[in-house]
Design a protein around this nucleic acid. Structure first.
Lengths: 122, 122
DNA sequence: CAGCATCCGAACCGATACTG
DNA sequence: CAGTATCGGTTCGGATGCTG
């Protein structure tokens, strides 16, 4: 998750990733899966990695993922709160698809961007 | 494109495909690519295969795809009009990604649906 | 820390009707 | 045939502020 085209740290409107034509679930679902791919993460850790995501949207994303059996939420019953999210087998099964999408992106996103730029000039 | 989970002919709200968590471009882009995968198609042929899509939305989809260099539009300059759309190499390059998504769907979509149903009961 | 409540603008998608 | 024009509704994502 460090030297690819699609990295959470780079997501902002001026970034080519905005043109990424492949999406898993909602806008943030794919990257949430990647962030969770090497172990459980806390809510705030996810927030930090998916930089511009607001808590509301992250909560919604995680809830939808939980509903679909992609993650499990674990409340460690502490004060202050400590909650972690972990991929299920089903959630992990999506990593291959995401990797296929990322491979495509690495190979072809520049072409798409070039085509778009050329079109927009005309 | 005949006996898979995701088939244009089956797309309607009551269909499991609505839960398909992987999307390429807009709602119809992925299926448009599949419909075009074995040769050029006319506008009306695409409309017929992507059953419930309205002309406006199909036009928009095709235009976006053209902008991104995924298809080329060919106007055969006839009356009545005869226009065909054909995948570019770039468009064709997405077929692998879509196939990966379809393979995932075949293997795991039932699990997702089951998880969702179980969650919704509780 | 891990959210919830509220409001809002934008995007997307669809229905319907019309046209060169 | 291959669109265009107009309108409308829903969904989505984001901003802001508050809470146990």
């Amino acid at each position: 998750m460090t030297d690819d085209v699609v990295r959470p740290e780079r997501i902002h409107p001026a970034c080519p990733t905005s043109a990424f034509p492949i999406q898993v679930g909602g806008k943030w679902t794919g990257m949430a899966i990647l962030c969770l791919s090497d172990g459980p993460r806390r809510f705030s850790e996810l927030r930090a990695q998916l930089t511009p995501v607001t808590p509301k949207v992250l909560t919604q994303t995680l809830r939808d993922m939980s509903r679909d059996g992609l993650v499990v939420r674990r409340d460690h019953q502490q004060n202050p709160p400590h909650v972690t999210y972990e991929l299920t087998d089903l959630g992990r099964s999506l990593i291959d698809v995401i990797d296929a999408a990322r491979a495509w992106s690495k190979a072809h996103l520049p072409d798409l961007l070039a085509a778009r730029a050329a079109h927009d000039r005309a």
